[in-house]
Amino acid sequence: MEKILDVKDLHVTFTTYGGTVKAVRGVNFHLNKGETLAIVGESGCGKSVTSNAIMRLIPDPPGKISNGSIHFHGKDLVRLSEKQMRNIRGVDISMIFQDPMTALNPTLTIGTQLMEGLRQHKKITGEEAKQKALEMMNLVGIPNPEERLKQYPHQFSGGMRQRIVIAMALICEPELLIADEPTTALDVTIQAQILELFNRIQEATGVSIILITHDLGVVAKIADRIAVMYAGKIIEVGTKREIFYQAQHPYTKGLLKSVPRLDLQGEKLTPIDGTPPDLFSPPVGCPFTARCPFAMEVCDKVYPGTTELSDAHKVDCWLQDERAKQLLASTANN
């Protein structure tokens, strides 16, 4: 499989009056062509910062990609100039934002906003741009596209706006689409429609998707692989099946247990106790130690190495160490 994106040892920091926030602390992951990778984690774990870093949309100052590389088709995006980056944004990599109510400019028509990316990047006549816009609106399922092009965002419902935003992101036929919580602001029936749309678009265009979310339901529906982020690090990554059925990291297990399920009636919902660590001074060891029911002394002192359980399944946890397994076995026997 061809890797189109390869992120290595990515660090992002934000300098504030209170000190430096280490929002992303050495993230590694890759994305294959045509695949959907979901990055999940609770609020503030650095998943949105990671996606903004790929687009180089981190406001600098205060933000800064302090280390690492983001290889996209062999080019390191971290090293590109702002001008070079502009020719990648919207053309090769596109992005969809969380809230469709605010992602569209209220003073410009849908048509203008749809076509401007196209007009910016491709040498194309107005008529061709319009044809392409109509085509995209058909693809994302907007009725009466011809008429709708002339309308303004306030004349669309939330779900329709998110469709427009998706059409806008896909109009230059990008290879990579980053969707930052694309369904969080929508109600449940619309969510399902939009997820369906993602599946359909991926089949039609072969676009690779990075999906940022905290909603495991969404992940279950469209992801191929899942990366679990915690306190600025990816602590476990694997195929959807591996994460849902063979999760290894206590945090991943905790996340899965805290999702209400209809098929397991009567089972208690177990939230993860405690709060994520302060990223002004992140712990040197595993950041989950303070909340982990299996925490050992080593967890607090040293960050665990990565254990490869299969080609796709990797986890950063001391419990994977042979000696830890022995320890658990012995305590179980006593």
């Binding site: 944004r89 919207g90 605010t102 401007e116 910016q120 806008m168």
Partner: peptide, 26 residues
Amino acid sequence: TQDYIKMARAKGLSPWKIVFKHALKN
């Protein structure tokens, strides 16, 4: 700081266009 300005940047528009086409009118 609005989302639609971020969206315009994500489209790869030039800063000039972002300010005069997207921001100024609002």
